[in-house]
C-alpha cells in the first residue's frame, strides 16, 4: 500500500493522519509535509500512526527530523500508536524515550491540553 497523508488543526495541535507504508520510497513525502507544517508555524504536531502498515528506520529518521525541527521552536511532536509491530521498532531503537506515544488522539489531546 502507498502512503496517504492528511492533516488538520484542532486548537493549537496539528494532527497528521498517516496511512500505509513509511519506507525509503515514501518517507520523503512525510518529511516534506512535516517541514511544510513547521515552516507555516505549526509547532505542536501529533502524528497518528494507527493506520500505518509498515515503518522502517527511514521513517523513524523522518519523525526524529520533525521532532528536532519543532523543538527548535519550543514545540512538540508526539505519536498515536497502539500497534505492537510498530511500537517494537521504537523500542528496539530506544526512541520510546524520545517520543511521547499515546493510545489515542483524544488521550494525546488531553495530555497536550494539560501542558498548555
Amino acid at each position: 500500500m502507498d502512503l496517504k497523508l492528511d492533516h488538520r488543526t484542532e486548537d493549537r495541535l496539528t494532527i497528521v493522519e498517516v496511512e500505509g507504508e513509511i519506507d525509503v520510497y515514501t518517507a520523503p513525502r512525510l518529511r516534506e509535509l512535516l517541514i511544510d507544517l513547521v515552516n507555516k508555524g505549526n509547532f505542536h504536531l501529533l502524528v497518528n500512526m494507527e493506520k500505518v502498515d509498515f515503518l522502517d528506520s527511514t521513517g523513524l529518521g523522518v519523525l526524529v527530523g520533525g521532532l528536532k525541527r519543532v523543538r527548535a521552536h519550543d514545540g512538540s511532536l508526539e505519536l498515536v500508536c497502539t500497534q505492537e509491530r510498530i511500537l517494537k521498532i521504537f523500542r528496539i531503537t530506544g526512541l520510546t524515550k524520545v517520543f511521547g506515544i499515546y493510545a489515542s488522539v483524544d488521550e494525546a489531546k488531553e495530555a497536550h491540553g494539560k501542558d498548555k
Binding site: D56, L60, G61, V64, K68, I92, T93, L95, V98
Partner: peptide
C-alpha cells in the same frame, strides 16, 4: 551505538539505525 538523546541523532547516525533494527529483529 544506542541513541541517548535527540542531539545525538544526526543524519549519519540515523543511517546506522537500519542495522540496529535488523539486529533487534
Amino acid at each position: 551505538e544506542q541513541p541517548l538523546d535527540l542531539g545525538m541523532l544526526s543524519d549519519s547516525f540515523m543511517s546506522n539505525f537500519g542495522i540496529a533494527v535488523i539486529e533487534g529483529l
